[in-house]
Amino acid sequence: MQDSTSTGEQAAADAEPGWIEPHERLDRSAITLWRVNGLIESGFTFLAASAAAAVASLFADLPWYISGLPLVVALLVAVITVGVAPTVRWRRWRYEIRDTEVDLQRGAIYITRTLVPLARVQHVDTQQGPLERRFGLATVSFHTAAGAHRIPALREERSREVAARIGALAKVARDEPL
């Protein structure tokens, strides 16, 4: 592993980032926000499911427990998206803005850890949808030449701090033009 770069050994001594999670978390009210989002989504799922169930029971001669199957599935999906997923997601979501990189960890089941060098950041956005505004939350997204990365559901003032910090560090870290 340390065969090529001289920084390898020193970096390994600093920390093993693979095992130390980034330490910042999202705002706790993210859970509520995601629950509300999930609720709205499951509303639509239910509409679709009831339509499917209605069609099945009216036009096809199926026993009730088969034509009702879409509703059961929709209920299951709702329980997961409203009840379970937001908490798990929040518990897993972490971020940290280091001097040279942004460290992100996300995903409820499929956990992804991403490191984005600040030198590669082109610009930073803060966004706020109507629902987020209700909760006093905002999303920071920062763009590299290969795409955008997001840190969702931060307190408004926190989101401003994060965006400003990423922006300022990106300016310093820029080592050479693309």
Partner: peptide
């Protein structure tokens, strides 16, 4: 994998 990610970190500013 984690070690490789670490090794590919940018040089400090």
């Amino acid at each position: 994998a984690f070690a490789a990610v670490q090794q590919l970190a940018p040089n400090p500013a």
